[in-house]
Simulated scan of single mutants.
Amino acid sequence: MGEVYMPQANPDGLLDHVLIHVPAGIDDDMCRFLGALKTLKGFDGREWRLMLEHIGQRNDFESVSPIVQTASVWQSQTPYLHPWHCKKDFDVPAQIRRECRERKLPEPIEIPPIPTIKPHGRELRPIDFHRFRSKRGLVQPDTRGSFWQLTFAEPLTGSLALGFGCHFGLGLFTPVDTDG
């Protein structure tokens, strides 16, 4: 998997940072490109000013972003969209387990669904999020989304993003407890 864009909200619940996780590392050309980005246009045509704050290793961000911490229990921060069509013996928890195996992550030992999340004190359902990608020929098996709590036998170090659209901020999980 390539780079993953993980939105981060301030205490008021407004998006004010994006953490870009690049497992293969960032070369000099990418550093220059990211540093040169000054604005971003939203779907509504509004422009957002951008500023590159830091490029570094995962542990450089532990004190400022919960998504790179270590925990045994992780909870949805954005809706998980299952990446395959559900079948009789292939429900959403089975898809989460398969995806963890394919990404060389440990399989969760518990995967209960969560009806709502409460970031910044505001109760949200999956339907409250933008959950669609419009790209010609793209098949999106899940357009509703769901929230989950994943419990692992051993602490897992983030970032953790799973499912359809996870490289654009969907399926993002944050730690419920920190062990590290």
Rank of each mutant, 00 (worst) to 15 (best):
E53D: 14
I26T: 06
L170P: 07
R46S: 12
R125K: 15
H17S: 10
L170F: 10
L15G: 12
P155N: 09
R125Y: 09
I55G: 03
D179P: 00
P175S: 02
T143D: 09
H130K: 13
H167S: 13
S63M: 12
Q77G: 06
R98W: 08
G163F: 02
V68R: 03
R101W: 00
Q69D: 07
R136P: 00
D28P: 01
P11F: 01
T116E: 12
P115V: 05
P119T: 09
P93M: 12
T178K: 14
L14T: 10
R32K: 14
P119M: 09
K38G: 06
C31I: 14
T143M: 07
E62A: 15
M30E: 10
R133E: 08
L19Y: 02
Q77M: 11
A9H: 06
R125L: 12
R122Y: 09
F173R: 04
Q75S: 14
H120I: 01
G13L: 08
I55S: 01
R58E: 10
R125W: 03
A9R: 12
E110Q: 14
S146W: 08
V64C: 08
D16L: 02
M30F: 09
E123K: 15
G137T: 08
A71R: 06
F168G: 04
L124A: 10
K41H: 02
L162A: 04
R122Q: 15
G169I: 05
T78V: 06
R58L: 15
K118Q: 15
L50T: 12
T151Y: 01
M30Y: 07
R58P: 06
N10Q: 07
Q149D: 04
L162Y: 08
D12F: 07
P79Y: 02
E47A: 13
V4N: 09
T174H: 11
H85T: 07
G169W: 04
E62V: 14
G180H: 10
W74K: 04
Q140N: 05
E154F: 06
S146H: 09
Q140Y: 05
F61L: 03
P11A: 10
L172W: 02
T174K: 13
A24H: 11
T39H: 13
E123R: 15
L37I: 13
C86W: 05
L37E: 09
Y80E: 00
P108R: 05
C31H: 14
H82M: 02
K41P: 00
G163M: 01
D16R: 11
I111S: 04
D89R: 13
F33K: 13
K88W: 03
R97A: 11
L50I: 14
V22N: 09
W148Q: 04
V139G: 00
I26K: 03
S76R: 03
R46Q: 14
H130Q: 14
L150D: 03
S146G: 15
G56Y: 03
L40Y: 12
V92F: 05
P7L: 07
S159I: 11
D179I: 12
I67P: 02
L170T: 05
H167L: 08
R98V: 01
F43T: 11
S159R: 03
V18Y: 05
I127C: 12
G169P: 08
W84I: 00
T70G: 01
C166L: 00
L40C: 13
G171W: 05
P79V: 02
M51R: 15
G163C: 05
K38A: 11
T174V: 15
F173P: 04
V73Y: 03
